[in-house]
Design a protein around this nucleic acid. Structure first.
Length: 195
DNA sequence: TGGATGATCGCA
DNA sequence: GCGATCATCCAG
């Protein structure tokens, strides 16, 4: 089944935890790639100093304040893109960052975009998976769901993995919150299950 | 361990 | 306008 707005209308913490084990599908530039989500992070609004929405709406974070089930892509460090899904009811900013997936389909396209021969290390990080899947700011504001042209949708298999909560990565603020969720048994994490 | 590389936003 | 900062990655 394909996850819709009702799924994403809940809190970013709930959505981030339940997305572990779900499958991300993305059609971009006539190639369809898919991967099993193994690592996510939750970002809230007003009370989360690490969130882009912490200081209120800006041109960049505008979609975080919109309806749930929408793609939020931003450009970071002048090099990488990061893929998020907007969560929570409209008007309440929240998002889940997809940090790592296990590649399933479209390995050839992923290797070509990443300019790598090996299967390892293709999608085990937020910037890496965006490069592999062809994610850039053209997808910002896109509604989730299959369709013509660029499309992103998420399905949830019946079998769910074990899920562990850890602290978020790459932040200088709110490091104490255990808002990163992983499948601790996955070999495709951006960092091992230890921290 | 640090450099690449550019958009963003608060503040002046 | 200016500049510190940034939810990263990889070579060395």
């Amino acid at each position: 089944m394909c996850l819709g707005p009702d799924f994403f209308a809940r809190s970013p913490l709930t959505v981030a935890a339940e997305l572990i084990g779900a499958v991300l599908h993305l059609r971009q530039d006539d190639a369809v790639c898919s991967g099993r989500i193994v690592e996510t992070e939750a970002y809230a609004g007003d009370d989360d100093p690490a969130s882009h929405a912490y200081r209120g709406p800006t041109p960049r974070n505008a979609v975080m304040f919109g309806p749930p089930g929408v793609v939020y892509v931003y450009f970071i460090y002048g090099v990488h893109h990061c893929l998020n899904i907007v969560t929570g009811p409209e008007g309440t900013p929240g998002a889940v960052l997809i940090r790592a997936v296990e590649p399933l389909d479209g390995l050839e396209a992923m290797k070509r975009r990443r300019d790598r021969d090996r299967d390892r290390g293709l999608t085990n990080g937020p910037g890496k998976l965006c490069e592999a899947f062809g994610v850039d700011r053209r997808l910002n504001g896109l509604d989730l769901g299959p369709g013509i042209g660029p499309a992103l949708w998420i399905t949830q298999p019946p079998d769910r993995p074990r899920v562990t909560a850890t602290s978020r990565i790459g932040l200088s603020r709110a490091v104490d919150r255990l808002w990163r969720f992983i499948d601790p048994d996955s070999r495709h994490l951006s960092r091992p299950a230890g921290s």
